[in-house]
Simulated assay, not measured.
Amino acid sequence: MLATFLIGLREGLEAALVVGILIAYLTRVGRRDVLPRLWSGVGLAAGLALVIGAVLTFGAYSLTFEAQELIGGGLSVLAVAMVTWMIFWMQKAGRTLKKSLEGEVDRALAAGTLWGIVLIGFVSVAREGIETTLLLWSMVQSFGDAPGALLGALLGLVTAVALGWLLARGMLRLDLRVFFTWTGALLIIVAAGVLAYGIHDLQEAGALPGPFASLAPVDPVTGAVAIGIGAFPFGWAFDLSASIPPGSPLAAILQATVGFMPQMSWLQVIGWALYVAIVGGIFAAKALRHRPPRPAPAPAVSPSTDHGTSPSPITSQGAP
């Protein structure tokens, strides 16, 4: 529930903020008459996300095991790619998002077409909807706990809608830059775990070499797939299943937070580490580059004693 709650909260709040900006602008320019068109676009986007989720959930039952793993692994990698793009897009476009959305509305209103506002509402929500669906589906496959994962996502979405409403009403102040920076950093860790599980699926499907293929090194004593440094690069990096059972609460928490699985192949570990190092490093560098400067402290002013007058403290705010 923790990881899916974070996904629902982050993606839901992004969508809620975008819709809130659009509604506020249409209200300000006196065009509340087109709000039904905007809501129809939002509804179509939500419906598309539900349809994709249903197709992924029920359409895989008729496939072979290898096909299911191949599709699951490929969609996990696709979800990670979408999350990565969205994290950097929000980091770059978040500062001008309001102006950009208002410009799109102005162009749609000037054109006078019915579908212009519908399309804006659809596109604004569809990106987060599809991304959330793919991520949730991948995480449900990896966790094997659909009710808990879906409940966490639902709670996150409900919380996001509530926060969006409070922000729109001016009843809540939230530093969105800090919020999206921290949730973006956490999403990078979650996405790294989804990538690692996607690699596991692709290895099981035979699309990538690993412990399930003929290239896997074998322990000469036990005859099983080798574990440890001697198993590099296509064997198991480690196997802690005896200490941390795969179905235990500890294993679930570690997998949801940092993408750790009790048994991981070398390709999984390398993929996780490279993703966190490269994507996390770029994200941190951009966040530090755009961090607002701290206000300079007011300079100390020595009291003036000329002509016997009283000290007159002057701060930088009082200077002309």
Rank of each mutant, 00 (worst) to 15 (best):
M1F: 11
A3Y: 04
T4M: 04
L9M: 05
L9A: 08
R10N: 14
L13C: 05
L13K: 04
A15K: 13
L26P: 15
R28K: 05
R31C: 09
R31F: 10
V34C: 01
S40F: 06
G41W: 01
G43A: 10
L44G: 03
L50A: 12
I52P: 04
V55M: 10
L56R: 02
G59I: 09
A67N: 09
G72D: 00
G73E: 08
S76M: 03
S76F: 04
A79M: 14
V83N: 08
M86N: 13
F88I: 12
F88G: 09
F88C: 07
Q91P: 03
A93E: 06
A93C: 07
R95P: 13
L97F: 14
K99T: 05
S100F: 06
E102P: 07
E104S: 09
D106R: 05
D106W: 13
L114P: 00
L114C: 04
W115H: 06
G116C: 00
I117W: 00
F122M: 09
F122G: 04
V125A: 07
G129C: 06
W137C: 07
S138K: 02
M139T: 05
D145F: 03
P147F: 12
G148V: 15
L151W: 07
L151R: 11
G152T: 02
A153K: 02
L154R: 06
L154W: 05
L155S: 00
L157T: 00
A168N: 06
G170H: 03
V178G: 10
T181H: 06
A185C: 04
L187N: 12
I188V: 14
A191E: 14
A192P: 02
L195A: 14
L195K: 03
I199P: 09
D201W: 15
Q203M: 13
E204F: 12
A205I: 08
G206M: 14
P209H: 15
P211E: 07
F212C: 12
A213I: 14
S214E: 04
A216E: 07
D219E: 00
T222E: 00
A231P: 01
G235S: 01
W236F: 05
F238C: 02
F238I: 06
L240S: 04
S241C: 08
I244W: 13
P245M: 01
G247D: 01
G247L: 01
A251W: 00
L254F: 01
A256K: 00
P262S: 05
Q263F: 03
S265G: 07
G271I: 11
L274G: 13
A277S: 13
I278N: 08
I278L: 08
G280W: 12
G281M: 10
I282H: 10
F283I: 13
L288Y: 07
R289T: 07
H290Q: 11
R294A: 03
P297V: 03
A300V: 10
S302I: 09
T305P: 10
H307E: 07
S310Y: 08
P311Y: 13
S312R: 11
S312K: 06
P313E: 00
T315I: 02
Q317M: 05
A319P: 12
P320V: 11
